[in-house]
């Protein structure tokens, strides 16, 4: 099983550090994960210097192979090959991952000033589409993650906006 971790276009030091901790990697390994791919953006962590110039770093820890890089023009191929995604709670990432039908754990960034990322994560968790976790609670959320309990996210319904605009324009 391959797990893809993404922090989006900025940085999320605490999430990257947590994912690389023995506690979280052990939980992932326990859940059947053999490989982790981390898109770490501009986050600061132990291996920051080795991927400074756009390199990919490959390492191994707790029987899990780890691949790390900063950015890619598109994350689509990483979403595609992942069996599960752990991400920041940005709405774009959430939509991309849920529309692909991949199991998703989101970790809202507590250092962001506005907390509407957390509102979105909570609202979607209440509907059963994903699990929301804190940074310290990540290992536990992975251990308790129940794939069967996830409610499938509905596909985009194009008729809603189409009807609104057709009506507005007198069609």
């Amino acid at each position: 099983m391959l797990v893809f971790v993404t922090v989006g276009s900025t940085r999320f030091d605490a999430l990257v550090q947590a994912v690389l901790s023995d506690r979280v990697l052990a939980a992932l390994s326990q859940a059947g994960c053999t490989a982790v791919v981390v898109q770490c953006g501009n986050s600061h962590f132990a291996h920051t210097h080795s991927i400074q110039n756009g390199e990919t770093l490959n390492t191994q820890q707790q029987n899990v192979t780890i691949e790390m890089y900063k950015f890619k023009p598109s994350l689509d191929s990483d979403y595609e090959r992942a069996d599960m995604v752990i991400s920041h709670a940005g709405s774009g990432t959430i939509l991309d991952v849920l529309r692909l039908g991949k199991p998703l754990i989101v970790v809202p960034n507590p250092t962001l000033l506005d907390n509407h990322q957390e509102e979105l994560a909570t609202a979607l968790e209440e509907l059963g589409h994903l699990r929301s976790s804190t940074v310290p609670g990540l290992a536990r959320t992975i251990e308790e993650f129940d794939r069967a309990a996830i409610v499938e996210f509905p596909p985009l319904d194009p008729s809603r906006f189409r009807r609104l605009l057709d009506e507005e324009m007198g069609f």
């Binding site: 709405s91 774009g92 939509l95 985009l156 194009p158 008729s159 906006f161 189409r162």
Partner: peptide, 16 residues
Amino acid sequence: SGGHTSEAIALLSSLD
């Protein structure tokens, strides 16, 4: 830009 663009593109993709 960013998320705003993604959402606007998704809105337009619905249209005829």
